[in-house]
Write a protein that binds this DNA or RNA. Structure first.
Length: 319
RNA sequence: CGCGGGAUAGAGCAGUUGGUAGCUUGCUAGGCUCAUAACCUAGAGGUCGGAGGUUCAAGUCCUUCUCCCGCAA
C-alpha cells in the first residue's frame, strides 16, 4: 500500500498533540481530517480560543471537525465521509466505540507512559510525583477499557533527578511524535504485531489532577514534597497558603524546591530565612528550600527577588 | 461584558488626609580585610504603564485604554 493511499484522521487538542500531527504532515502522510475540541471561551476574560491542534490544522489547510458530542449522528456521518483507513488519537478524550472501530485499520493512541503503568489523564505528572526514574511513550490500539489496548511500540525515557513536568512533557512530546510516525510506518508495512499489556507488576495509576490534589501536604517527607512540586511544575503548580498578620491567607505557588535532609528540632512548617538569599520550610526529616515561587497576584519569581520586596516574611505562617 | 489583584530605578517592593519620590538589592568607582553572598564611602540610574480630566499642586482623586497575575472553566 502506498503512503498517499493511507487516509488518516487525527484527533487531539493541546500542544502535546500538535507535534505528532506536524511530524505526520512533514513526513508526507495523508492526514485527511483533524478532530479537535470546539472553540471555547477560555482563560482570562473568557476569550474564545481555538485549540493548538486546530490552529496548526487550519494553517495546513486540513479540514477540521469540532464535535460537541462524539456520538452525534451528524458528526459520525461526517467522519464516515472521509473514508479513513486509520485514526490516530493523541491527548484527546475518551472515544465511543462507534468512533474508534470505524476505520479499516483501527485507531491507535499515543500515551505518555510505559503502559500498563500510569494509565489515565496525567501520566507525566504522576510519574514524577511518585519519584520514578524512567517513563516513556506507548502507542497502542484502542479497545474498550481506557489505556489497555495492545501495544504497538514503546520507548522509554529517563527522568532526571531535577526534571519537572515542563521539561519532561516537551521531551516526551518530541519522542512521541517520532513514535507516532514509526507506528504509522509499521502499520503501513502490514507487519503489525501488537502485543497485549503485561500486568504482572503492581499498577500505578495517573488520574486527572484537580486543584485540591495540588495542595502541599507538609506532613510528608522532604523528598516526596520535592517530587510533588516538580511533578506539578510549571502547571498546574503545587501550592500552600501563606498567612500574614491581620490579613487573609494568600495562595503561594511553589515551582522549584531543594531538599536538605537533616535532623532538627524546629516545629513543622517553620519558616527560616535570612531575608535575602534563602527561604526554607521545616519538614519532618529536614528543610525544604523554596527556590521559585509565586504569590497570588504577582509574577513568578526566584526566592531572592521575592524576599527583596516581601519584607514581612518573618511574621508569616505557612498553612 | 464572569470575579478579583497589579503596573513606581536593571530586579523586587514601600509611598499616610494630594505638597517636587524612597527601601532592599543589583550596577560603577574608591576604601578596608587572613577571610566571606563580608563591611564602609561615594556615584549613576525614574516621562511613577499610555491618553485625557479635577487642582495653585496628582505616584496619590476621576474617566478611559493597554499589558501582567490569581480564581473560575
Amino acid at each position: 500500500m502506498k503512503k498517499e493511499d493511507l487516509r488518516i484522521i487525527y484527533m487531539g487538542t493541546p500542544e502535546f498533540a500538535v507535534e505528532s500531527l506536524k511530524a505526520l504532515v512533514e513526513n508526507d502522510f495523508n492526514v485527511v481530517a483533524v478532530v479537535t475540541m470546539p472553540d471555547k471561551p477560555i482563560g482570562r476574560g473568557h476569550k474564545v480560543q481555538s485549540s493548538p491542534v486546530k490552529e496548526y490544522a487550519v494553517a495546513q489547510k486540513i479540514p477540521v471537525l469540532q464535535p460537541e458530542r462524539l456520538k452525534d449522528e451528524s458528526f459520525l456521518a461526517e467522519l464516515r465521509s472521509f473514508n479513513a483507513d486509520l485514526q490516530i488519537v493523541v491527548a484527546f478524550r475518551m472515544l465511543p466505540e462507534v468512533v474508534w472501530a470505524m476505520p479499516r485499520l483501527g485507531t491507535f493512541n499515543l500515551h505518555a507512559s510505559l503502559l500498563p503503568q500510569y494509565r489515565g489523564a496525567a501520566p507525566i505528572n504522576w510519574a514524577i510525583i511518585n519519584g520514578e526514574t524512567k517513563t516513556g511513550v506507548t502507542t497502542f490500539f484502542l479497545q474498550h477499557e481506557i489505556d489497555t489496548g495492545n501495544i504497538i511500540l514503546q520507548e522509554s525515557v529517563a527522568i532526571l533527578p531535577e526534571e519537572n513536568v515542563g521539561n519532561l512533557h516537551d521531551k516526551l512530546m518530541h519522542i512521541g511524535a517520532k513514535s507516532v510516525v514509526r507506528t504509522v510506518e509499521i502499520i503501513l508495512s502490514e507487519k503489525v504485531n501488537a502485543i497485549p499489556q503485561q500486568e504482572d507488576e503492581e499498577l500505578k495509576l495517573a488520574p486527572k489532577i484537580f486543584k485540591d490534589t495540588c495542595r502541599i501536604n507538609w506532613e510528608k517527607s522532604g523528598e516526596s514534597i520535592h517530587n510533588f512540586v516538580r511533578g506539578l511544575s510549571p502547571y498546574p503548580a503545587a501550592w500552600c497558603e501563606l498567612l500574614q498578620d491581620n490579613s487573609d491567607a494568600v495562595v503561594l505557588k511553589v515551582f522549584e524546591t531543594k531538599f536538605e535532609k537533616i535532623s532538627h528540632q524546629m516545629p513543622l512548617k517553620s519558616i527560616l530565612t535570612d531575608g535575602k538569599s534563602y527561604l526554607k520550610v521545616a519538614v519532618n526529616d529536614g528543610f525544604l528550600h523554596l527556590k521559585t515561587i509565586q504569590i497570588q497576584g504577582k509574577k513568578r519569581m526566584n526566592v531572592s527577588d521575592f524576599l527583596m520586596g516581601f519584607r514581612t516574611i518573618n511574621s508569616c505562617k505557612i498553612v
